[in-house]
Amino acid sequence: MTDILQLKNVCVRFRIKSAMGALFDRTSPASFDAVRDASITLEEGQTLALVGESGAGKSTLALAITGLERIAEGSIQFEGREISQMQANEIREYRRGIGYMWQNAIGSLSPRMTVRSLITEPARIHRVPNVNTRELSSKLLDLVGLSEEFGDRYPHQLSGGQARRVGVARALALNPRLIVADEPTAGLDVSVQGEILNLLNQLQDELKISMLVITHNLNVVRHTSDKIAIMYLGRIVEQGDTAEIFSRPRHPYTLALLSASPSPDPDMQADRIELKGEIPSPINRPSGCEFHTRCPFVKETCSESPPPFEAVSESQALSCYFPR
């Protein structure tokens, strides 16, 4: 298996003060890392899930992969090519190979365009020669299970699930090798969530596309992903095969995430791991293990120095001094 996407020690830094401001006020930091030291690999044809709560830096990392956010440190390689070194026109060309599904399905569709022109927009942007937009749109609509009549609708005339399907169709327009799906089921009813996940699964099986799924809901990725990376405060804290993460989560944060989703069974009294407080700000990172402020199993050493990210088995790795 070859790796289609490889991230090594990626940092994405945001400046919060102007150069001038930083010169005069040295008491607070001038920048912060939304993503820090993140390394992930995605194998060709597989699905990797990036899981974490809001503020974990998942979407920032995804935008860095598309080249829309510049990385401050580390490297991102797509099919062996380093993207942080690319020129503006090379980046545009590179983006052809990536289909992006946005979290806000309706909001990511230009409001004054019909579905037909929306899903063929990528072909027009990249001036694909000899393309019959009518044929292409029919093919794409068919692929995502929408009937031909949807082609003439406008975004506000779509339901949440239909808008998602349009988003998928647009992502597929130029036969991408990688699809990045940011919260593909956010805001959808449970009966529709399944439809979208099934569609993604089916497309992957048919078209052999690699996928990066970003979500805060572990239940969503249990059935779609091969591997899972858990993010906290811009870092990957645990990574492993989906089955392994679900059957034997080792990092306390993963445990907490898994038990945080209440099951629809009133008699299931889960021995829940409840976290204290909320995710700290990346501007003032806690010392040592950055999770120690909320960890239910915290010990003295945790706040002293950061635990290394180490493999605990062939496919599972995490950063914790006292894995479960």
Partner: peptide
Amino acid sequence: NEFIKAEQVMGAKTTRILGL
């Protein structure tokens, strides 16, 4: 808005985004 970011990620040029 996300649809502008979406255009950028699809590789659209600034003139296209502004005009269209």
